[in-house]
Simulated assay, not measured.
Amino acid sequence: MTFLISATYSVVPERDVILPPLTSKVLKYVLEGHPKIGSLVKSAKKYKEISIFPLFLRGRYLYSTGPGVMTLRAKERASFTFSLASEEVDPEVFEKIPNEVSTPYGDFVMILEEIRMTELGEVRAELGHKVNVRFETPTLLSNKYMVPPNVKARKLRQMNRLLPQPSLLISSLARIWNSIATPKEVIVLGDSDWTPYKLGRIADVMFAEVGYSLTPVTVVVGKDKNGNLRKTRGFNGWVKYEVVEAKRYTESMEKLLGLANFLGVGRSRGIGFGKVKVERV
């Protein structure tokens, strides 16, 4: 059995600090040294069991979109969240995250505020007639999510799409789900290799956009060896979908969108991209 666990912490710097362009790297540095979580953070798996989201301050997530610097003042309280999938539930996992941490970005006090947990098999985002998907941090949906298994995706150029086409959203979530699920929990439509593609195609039929507000955004992810800024481009905002009833597939769609509320969607969830909130309207 797989469990989904989400933990939220307050983080307070001892002194004024300059934050990295991806503020999720503060938490990533702390978790890399954790005896159990560290292996998940360092994993080279394509679809990781862990998502680490950026610092949250005054109603917005902190990430850099240009050459300027971001700071956090001494004693100013921000928060962050990370979520993971695991077949074990051990409270000591969170107790072993220290309250006082020293990082390359400064010294911080960390306080556990909230833990949410559910079984993977129980997670749902009820659809109803309409559903709203809010992309809270820049989201990277690859065109390769909808490459059929009989086509060699490696030969195709990877591009991030700037519109959340339902097929890309659902195909991404199906890949994440089946990578963390036990054999009894996997979602399969006929052939397992074809399942993400098939669910994506069905999603394009089931979901129709009836409202949206989306903004393309370029995010700084670091610097290359020559000191030049490395950037990637995604989008944030929201889309309201009208849902066409298809009883055979509704449960699978609700499971996948429920998963999105924990682990997010798309590429680079481990460094802060793809945090979403799915709600029935």
Rank of each mutant, 00 (worst) to 15 (best):
V205G: 00
A153K: 13
Y197C: 10
N236K: 10
G272V: 07
I52M: 07
K96R: 14
E254N: 08
E209A: 15
P98Q: 06
P216T: 03
I271T: 15
Y9W: 13
L72K: 00
T215D: 11
E100A: 11
L263M: 07
G190K: 12
S79C: 03
L189K: 12
L263N: 02
F135I: 11
G234H: 00
R201L: 15
V210S: 03
Y63D: 04
L169F: 05
V12C: 12
Y249D: 06
F207A: 09
V221N: 06
N228S: 11
A74Y: 00
E185D: 09
M110Q: 01
I115L: 04
K152M: 14
G190F: 08
N236D: 14
L72M: 13
L169P: 05
V205L: 15
S64M: 11
L140R: 06
E76C: 00
V101E: 01
Y47C: 02
A78I: 01
V219C: 09
T218Q: 13
N228K: 15
W177D: 03
E88T: 14
S171P: 10
V93N: 03
R175H: 06
P149Q: 13
R267A: 13
L22N: 04
F273V: 04
I18A: 08
T8A: 08
A203C: 09
G264H: 10
E122N: 14
T2I: 15
M146T: 14
L19W: 01
V221T: 15
G237P: 08
L62N: 02
K152T: 14
V17T: 09
G274Y: 07
V220G: 07
K155C: 02
H34E: 03
T195G: 05
F262I: 01
G266H: 04
V220S: 00
R154M: 06
D90C: 09
E119N: 11
I202S: 07
L4N: 06
G200M: 09
I170Q: 05
L57G: 02
S86K: 01
G121C: 10
P196K: 01
Q165Y: 15
T118H: 06
F53Q: 07
E245W: 08
S39F: 03
R175E: 14
K231P: 00
E88R: 15
A7S: 10
N132H: 04
R267N: 12
L163M: 05
I50F: 02
F135Y: 12
T215Y: 15
V101Y: 01
V265R: 03
P216A: 08
L169W: 04
Y197F: 15
L62D: 01
F56A: 01
I37P: 00
P183N: 07
Q165M: 14
F80S: 06
I176S: 02
R124Y: 10
E49G: 11
N228L: 10
P166W: 02
T215P: 02
L168N: 09
K25F: 06
E92D: 14
V221W: 02
Y197P: 12
